[in-house]
Design a protein around this nucleic acid. Structure first.
Lengths: 137, 137
DNA sequence: GCTTCATGTTTACAAACGTAATCGTTCCGT
DNA sequence: ACGGAACGATTACGTTTGTAAACATGAAGC
C-alpha cells in the first residue's frame, strides 16, 4: 500500500521533518525546481550528473516521503511528488546550523571567514554591498 | 591580516584527511582550544554537555587519528593529542561546501538569505560593513 | 607482589546513508 | 491475449556515524 498516512493538515508542512541527507537534498532541488515530478523526471535531472540509476532515485523519494519532506499524490499507478517543505526553509535551516555549529551563531564570522579565504568574488562583494545599503536604509 | 597570502600555510597538513563528522568536530574544537590534550581532558570539556562517556571520546579520538586529522604523541603510556588540521581550514572548507551545495557557490546568496531571514544582527551588519570596506581598499 | 586504576585497542551494534537489485503488478503495444 | 516496459514496494548490502563495552596492559599504591 501507499504508506502516505494522510493527516494532511497544512501545505508546506512547517513541522518537524527529519533531517534530509545530501543525496536526498539533490532530489529535493529537482522537486523545488519543477514543482511536481515523477520519479523518472527526477532521474532525468540528476541521474547523469550524480551517476545514479533510477532505482536510487526511487529509494530517495521513498525516504523523503517517509521523512514527510515530500508528498506523493497517486496518479494512475504512479506518483507525482511535490515538496512539503520550502526551499528557503531548508537552506535557512542548514545555514543556521552551520553558523551555529562553526561560528557560535555569529553570521558575521562566517562572512569574515569567506572573505579571508577569498571565497568571495567581486560579484559577491558588490551584491553584498548593495544588500547592505538596502538593509541600512 | 588581510588576504593576498597565496603561498602561506605549507606545513599544517593541508593533505587529504577524510571528512570529519559532527561528533568528531566537537572533539576537534577542544583540541583547537587547548592545543594539546589527553583523552581525559577532552572529556572534561565535552562529556557533560554532550552526555558522553570517556569511551566515546576515545573512539572519536581514534577515528580522528585514523583520518589523519589529529596527531597522537606518546607520553608515557598515554597519548597527547593535537590537531593536524587548522580550525580555519576546517571551517573554511565546511563553509564552502555549504555555499556550493545550497547557493551554487554564490556566497552573496547566502548573505542574502541570512539577511532575508533576519538572521543578521546589527553587530553582524556593522562587522560585515567594516570588512567590506577593508576588502575594497 | 597483588589489586586497582588509568589508558589505548578491539570489538560491538543500531541507525543513517549511498546505491542499488529484485519482486509484484499493471499498462501498453501488437 | 501476451510479452515486455514501467512503477512502486521490498529487500539488500557495504560504509559511516554515534555511542559505547570489553579487553589488555602498564603504573601506582599498599
Amino acid at each position: 500500500m501507499t504508506q502516505s498516512n494522510a493527516e494532511n493538515s497544512a501545505q508546506t508542512d512547517h513541522g518537524k521533518h527529519e533531517r534530509i541527507s545530501e543525496a536526498e537534498h539533490a532530489v529535493m532541488e529537482v522537486l523545488w525546481e519543477r514543482g511536481t515530478v515523477t520519479a523518472a523526471e527526477v532521474c532525468e535531472d540528476v541521474c547523469e550528473a550524480r551517476e545514479w540509476g533510477l532505482a536510487t532515485v526511487k529509494t530517495l523519494l521513498s525516504r523523503l516521503v517517509a521523512k514527510r519532506a515530500i508528498a506523493a499524490k497517486p496518479d494512475g499507478r504512479r506518483y507525482i511528488y511535490s515538496a512539503l517543505i520550502e526551499r528557503s526553509d531548508y537552506i535557512g535551516g542548514e545555514s543556521k546550523r552551520l553558523v551555529d555549529r562553526l561560528f557560535g551563531g555569529q553570521a558575521s564570522s562566517l562572512f569574515a571567514h569567506l572573505a579571508e579565504q577569498e571565497a568571495l568574488s567581486e560579484d559577491d562583494l558588490s551584491a553584498i554591498e548593495a544588500l547592505l545599503k538596502e538593509l541600512k536604509q
